[in-house]
Design a protein around this nucleic acid. Structure first.
Lengths: 242, 242
DNA sequence: CGCCAGGTTGATTTCGCTCAAGCAATGTGG
DNA sequence: CCACATTGCTTGAGCGAAATCAACCTGGCG
């Protein structure tokens, strides 16, 4: 049972000028459009466990992740659920249903405290009509996401839990990994093992066991939520072999 | 080992005016653009078993399926492979890598004899720049495909082989199903059980057994590649329950 | 006719899920 | 400040679904 903390009041403050936006699809906006964006944007901070939107909701607009971590989750009738995507700093949420003209097909659930800029669908559609470049940026982004989804589909179908876990650790390295001067890699897992299980389509017990197996083989060393990898090449080599 | 039959010579004939195009993303083209399309298009008939492009190839352009059936397949180092998507009449192949500016991440393999209209990447990029509507159509299409990919990911992770087979039969009904006057449904499976296995992430033996189980339960009746479904509702009901 | 790919069937094994118990860390109320 | 819930992780035992291995059809085709 998730207890929703009282949400903070939405703010009209334009998110410290939202500098991250310029490095994303939103970099296509003209100066005038940026002003319009800043006029209409509504910003809000979500705490861990809160939901941004839920499966079945109409798509009211887009959510730009200023910083934080959000899981996009699908839930079945029987209660099983899968995380279909993660949204990091700089990612935009809700673009798929908006572009496909559908309702939300998944729930966005905050994993780490997250600052979100919301832009309503009407303004967004205006941008798409007036600025073809923005559409092309989103087109490119959606095509990349489709490739990733197909990649993951393949993995879940063909690879063992152990291998999928290694894939996940390598994936999380991009955002949560640091490398020390002696070449040791540390990955600070930003989520619970339950969430990791939902990411790779497995049960939490299986994740726990797989992590211990990999540790027993000397490929990683776990302490709390931090994974130490002494020989990254050996870990990656297992991916290419299996 | 696939033995590639000698490909027929590409033809400049504009595919019997390609009437199917108007009902797809390509419907956004203006009259002038259609003329340009017809000038640059190269058409060709592929036989079952031939490949249109392979994983790792640079994306040279788009392939419009005039008619036929194509499987988009990913293959692992160890030889395992999965069909990530099917392309039917009216579908366009190769748009994902073109839009994402990547190489092909999958192989397109002809299942049933297929007539393809090829349009080169340069012309396509010209269309995208000159006609924002076309980009929006592809954006919508890609967003829908992303939703489907996420749906399938979920299914493979959570459902039994039996249930996934039923899903597949119901999916194929759209293109290969006919319904008789007494309400009986016939689905003419367009592919081998091996391919069906690759579609749902299972082994051929498991597909064979699952099909027989479903038949033993009286839900379907198999004869050759034709599935007879007397009570469609009972079949669909199993999907909603499981 | 014989070959061979595709399909069936059986025996065995393996992987991961389920169920269940225990444990450490954190939180909470008296 | 201590008893107690709660939550997340670990570990074990047993089971079941599907993979694997292997033999054997069957029909189409050179």
């Amino acid at each position: 049972m998730v207890k929703d903390k009282p949400p903070e009041h939405p703010s009209k403050i334009p998110c410290q000028k939202a500098r991250y936006r310029t490095e994303t699809e939103w970099g296509a906006l003209t100066r005038d459009e940026i002003n319009l964006f800043d006029r209409d944007v509504v910003c809000k901070t979500y705490c861990s466990g809160e939901t941004i939107f839920v499966e079945g909701d109409a798509c009211k607009g887009l959510y730009f992740v200023e910083h934080g971590l959000v899981a996009v989750r699908k839930t079945e009738i029987n209660g099983q659920s899968t995380i279909v995507r993660l949204a990091y700093q700089g990612d935009t949420l809700g673009y798929r249903p908006l572009l496909a003209k559908e309702n939300h097909r998944a729930t966005a659930e905050v994993i780490n405290d997250t600052h979100i800029c919301f832009i309503n669908a009407k303004t967004m559609r205006h941008f798409l009509r007036s600025n073809p470049k923005l559409g092309m940026r989103f087109l490119e982004h959606t095509a990349l996401a489709l490739g990733q989804a197909e990649e993951r589909m393949f993995q879940i179908a063909a690879l063992s839990v152990r291998t999928r876990i290694i894939h996940l650790v390598v994936l999380l390295r991009d955002h949560y990994g640091t490398i020390t001067s002696d070449g040791t890699l540390f990955v600070d897992l930003p989520m619970s093992q339950r969430d990791m299980a939902d990411m790779i389509g497995a049960r939490p017990e299986s994740v726990s066991r797989a992590l211990r197996d990999i540790q027993d083989d000397g490929l990683i060393h776990l302490s709390g939520h931090t994974v130490r990898v002494d020989r990254v090449d050996r870990l990656v080599e297992e991916l290419h072999h299996h």
